[in-house]
Design a protein around this nucleic acid. Sequence first.
DNA 1: TTCGGGAAAACGTCTGATGACTCACGCGCG
DNA 2: CGCGCGTGAGTCATCAGACGTTTTCCCGAA
Lengths: 230, 230
Amino acid sequence: MAATDKALAGLRQMIASGELGPGAKFPPEPELCDHLGVSRSSLREAVRSLGALGVIESRHGSGTYVSALDPAAIISRFSLSVELIPLEGVLELLEVRRVLESHATAAAAARQDPDLAEHLGKVLDQLESTTEATEIQHLDAEFHGLICSAGGNPTVTALTEVIRGRGGHYRIFEPGADFDAIKQTSDRGHRAILSAILTRDPAAAATAASAHIAQTELWLRALRPEPRPA
Amino acid sequence: MAATDKALAGLRQMIASGELGPGAKFPPEPELCDHLGVSRSSLREAVRSLGALGVIESRHGSGTYVSALDPAAIISRFSLSVELIPLEGVLELLEVRRVLESHATAAAAARQDPDLAEHLGKVLDQLESTTEATEIQHLDAEFHGLICSAGGNPTVTALTEVIRGRGGHYRIFEPGADFDAIKQTSDRGHRAILSAILTRDPAAAATAASAHIAQTELWLRALRPEPRPA
DNA sequence: TTCGGGAAAACGTCTGATGACTCACGCGCG
DNA sequence: CGCGCGTGAGTCATCAGACGTTTTCCCGAA
């Protein structure tokens, strides 16, 4: 087996076997090199690999540690790769977001949380009163993020966030011929979702969220001939 | 900015800007070092990072290339990190699988594919006639994988596969007190899913898949006091 | 007791050299 | 002329060593 792969397997094994739990500290690099039988360069490349995946963190001057191994945190690391996926693939991802976020929105509606509804209302007020692309994107993310969080599954929140972040790179809300129509449709979609949450109607919430995201899919699909990543 | 981070940002930029598309070849390492202003060690660590994320591949003796940037392939890379997530986090992930696979199963049922149904039937026949843990796991993966593939979204298939792979590390089907009861419940669940597909009833298929996976969640939840990763 | 300096520990980066693998070119044989 | 096949250039893989930077902690002085 190649040196770096050997180191990688060794490091993963140390975690998988339970020898090192979340937050635990690895031995110093020289010791690990000796233990794994590879040079420091190879060990460090292996550490970088696991670092990119959110499994390990190296702290300069302190040591190398196992991360918290929290699913949401690990999924967030995906944004580094997901943000490079071409438009065609983003459409597949949006179906995932549509299904998951629809589920989370229903769960949020099933709860009875006046604070959430109030907060969402404020966000929508702001969102409807702006036409600045960056601000729209930011408020849209806050709106959907709050709802997903209320859904109760941080993993779902992280996944939808990563996918939403990718879609956000395509500037749907650039001032242009269809800007007003698109903005109004989007705003209405948000209000429909909030309305379902206010009336505590999970089925309506799921439908509204699904329709809203499906609309986004349509807009992105229209960009297909000429994708314009940020 | 730190050297490795600078290299990482530079490499990502080369892809994000469209300078290098899927499958394109990077310049040789010495040239990249010069271009990015870092040493070869730092560059290689950055390359490893992106390699772990499935964004680029180094081929010994040939060169370094941008990957296909296929969402399903990128998501498969997650298994390296997801397989290290503790049981508590796996339960959150299983909710994701339940929602996604339920959706995909409904889509599979909506299609009219006699070949799929026939294939699934054969797999279940085999599955019901074995009590060997590894074989059960293998056939179970094939059954669910076929259905997800029929759902039409490779990204969903990849995601559910990663999560299923993680769950599979917990040996639910070890011979033990409840083995027969668990096996029978599992087999019945599979038959219910196949039945819904055969009758082309998407709603029933979604419900059956959801119930089947929810059952798995219950079994795993019961392991919580004493998780036993592979 | 508190604050600050300094030494030790650990990761971060760079350099140079050597090995291993791939691929294509060109030579020689049939 | 066509087909292998060897060979060499190109490229990544690995190793070894040295030095810089950051963190951490101990210990002495106020």
